[in-house]
């Protein structure tokens, strides 16, 4: 039941005679899908447990986990399934942050080398994503071909690289700006966003140092939802703007404080306790609003119209340990 993917062993079954999809195994976890659903199965204390998600929701969640390299902290596919990034290693869990499973000892967490779990997740995405379905797109933009038996693939969509600059997009040797020519037309929801670029008047000799671009035009050309790029880097301070439409496919559990600055339109955030999922607050952000996401919460956003959000991250190494140990408080400001 195995095949080699990128020199890493991925345990995969032959394609199903009924659906055409492969099933996969990773540690004690098994993954399978049918026409509508993705199923994750695990065993605890001799008991078999399974959890089912709609296949599109599962693929959207897994797509973010892969694209973000397991991100900062917890990527909850839903209240039961998810991953925790240990930076070099990744925990895969079922029920570990769900009070009912936890209380009954029916949760399972296993730790994998990041490359191993990444290879398996990529293989699942590759096999289960049908032609025409783009897990990065808003539902209004993509086909419903995720429903049904296996039908081709969409590697162009799922193998997109996250756009991360080293200092600022458009500088010599840095990330490219987005244009029609390089495959980034203005998104339908941002057709009214000005494409005018700033006037740059550089004196001779300073053409490479005097630099500006339209961040809003850049964002209007994003071809993905809920997938931050990096638009400025100040040491460990990273601006990660993104465009959001419909529902964040995962519940992100913070292992550090992050901040949101709403650049346009509106997002409603449901905030839950990171460990239990108990509701804590709803944060409704409009253009110009700034809000912290504390280090002890998980959050999921809802954006009825495609919006621009600046996610601000601190990439200082060792932060998870400082918050976990209590040396840093989960909330960033006392007042």
């Amino acid at each position: 039941m195995s095949q080699t993917v990128n020199a890493l062993e991925v345990k995969a079954s032959p394609a199903s005679n009924q659906t055409g999809y492969r099933s996969f195994e990773l540690g004690s976890f098994a993954f399978s899908r049918d026409e509508y659903f993705a199923k994750v199965t695990w065993h605890v204390g001799g008991q078999k447990l399974s959890h089912v998600m709609s296949a599109d929701a599962f693929l959207r969640a897994m797509m973010r986990d892969v694209a973000w390299g397991f991100f900062y902290g917890w990527v909850n596919f839903d209240p039961v399934i998810g991953t925790r990034n240990l930076y070099g290693k990744v925990e895969l869990y079922a029920g570990a942050y769900h009070p009912a499973y936890k209380e009954k000892g029916l949760d399972l967490t296993e730790t994998f080398d990041s490359r191993e779990i990444m290879a398996t997740f990529k293989a699942i995405l590759d096999d289960w994503t049908n032609e025409g379905f783009d897990p990065f797109a808003a539902p209004d933009e993509t086909d419903t071909t995720w429903v049904g038996k296996k039908n081709g693939n969409n590697r162009l969509a799922i193998e997109r690289q996250r756009q991360a600059c080293k200092r600022m997009p458009g500088l010599a040797g840095d990330a490219e700006l987005r244009t029609d020519k390089n495959g980034y037309p203005v998104n339908r929801a941002f057709a009214d966003v000005s494409q005018e670029e700033p006037e740059v008047h550089a004196e001779p000799g300073f053409e490479d140092e005097v630099h500006a671009f339209s961040l809003f035009a850049y964002l209007s050309r994003s071809d993905v939802t809920w997938n931050p790029s990096v638009s400025s880097v100040l040491e460990r301070s990273l601006c990660c703007p993104t465009t959001e439409e419909y529902i964040l496919p995962i519940k992100h559990g913070n292992d550090r404080v992050e901040w949101f600055i709403q650049l346009s339109d509106q997002i409603e955030w449901e905030i839950e306790d990171k460990q239990t999922g108990a509701p804590r607050a709803k944060v409704i952000m409009k253009a110009g609003d700034v809000a912290a996401m504390p280090a002890d919460i998980r959050h999921q956003g809802y954006s009825k119209k495609r919006s621009m959000l600046l996610v601000w991250e601190n990439a200082t190494p060792g932060l998870p340990e400082l918050y976990e140990s209590g040396k840093l408080k989960p909330n960033p400001v006392e007042f």
Binding site: A281, K286, D289, A292, M293, P332, V333, F335
Partner: peptide, 8 residues
């Protein structure tokens, strides 16, 4: 206060 919510 945990959300340090303001508007620019």
């Amino acid at each position: 206060k945990n959300y340090v919510f303001s508007n620019i």
